[in-house]
Amino acid sequence: MCGIIGVIDRTKARMDGSSIKKALSLMKERGSGEGAGYVAYGIYPDYPDCYAIHVFFDNLVEPKSKVDEVLQKWGRIVHQEEIPTYEQPCLKREHIPWRYFYRPYTEFIVGSNNPAEDIIKHLVMTVNSTIQGALIFSSGINLGVFKAAGWPEEVADFYRIEDYKGYIWLAHNRYPTNTPGWWGGAHPFNLLDWAVVHNGEITSYGTNRSYVESNGYKCTMSTDTEVVAYLFDLLGRRHGLPSEMIVEALAPQFWDEIDLLPEKEQKLKRTLRLTYGPALMNGPFAIVVATSKGIVGFTDRIKLRPLVVGENGSRLYISSEEAAIRVMDPEVKSIYMPRAGEPVVGRVVQ
């Protein structure tokens, strides 16, 4: 089932994690106590130009020295520390969460439009697929994922997320059917600037996976959610499509509806569908994706998962349940349900 919620303050006013913790806890019923997580943007203002690399280490001996080694090969570790955590009675500590603030050496590679990001992506793929006992689960600038196997409150308290202040928060409460209890399997899923929370199951996973893999991504997390992040990265960062158009590619209108549109729009949508056919996502899902510039939420094309939107001034909320929004913001002004496949976009205003 899973519960998701996201919020953005479009003026970049920062909120601490206490209210999203309450909202996610209200949707406890949607999870099973085997995975919850949060991501927040704007939490590391002291390192505004460093990639904040969060890693789960099984121990600080071998895996850590190997990660240190590859990081140092490709760039400079500006600062590193264990992510502060606080014992929770029912949460079994499976890994040691660690963070690096990191600057890649961009002059090392050629033929890239964005060498820094390509290096980070490469490091994530390499560490996660080759270094036993280390998993990079967060790799963007001035943002961080905090997740573990547990109930929403426990995970929030384990990391004391009220100590972090961000202008975008996404949270997820997991009811796993695959890889239960694995910390890496919890959401949000992040790569570079993209973070994803997802409720549902992607029946087109096999097709989407071959598509992103044929474009140089490696699916290492055994979860269909990572494929969403890679699709956004491929279509958004590498192909330069705006969020609305990415959503249109992932959850396009039906052909019979496209056929009725005016010629120019029809042509655009047809070209988009033909070009990105293997990116089309099938199955029941509601997804919220964030970048430092904003958030976008959408559901599958026939609305097999719930999604509710609320607005209050500069704040936009997207959630599985209306009650969760109301818990976060009792004063919320307009609440509505977007149509299937319709992108709900909240952008940062400068």
């Binding site: 029946t203 087109s204 097709t207 071959s210 089309l280 099938n282 199955g283 029941p284 094309r301």
Partner: peptide, 12 residues
């Protein structure tokens, strides 16, 4: 659970 042929294509 698939409603579009693109999502069956190559879906091992």
């Amino acid at each position: 659970g698939i409603n579009s042929i693109e999502s069956l294509r190559g879906n091992r």
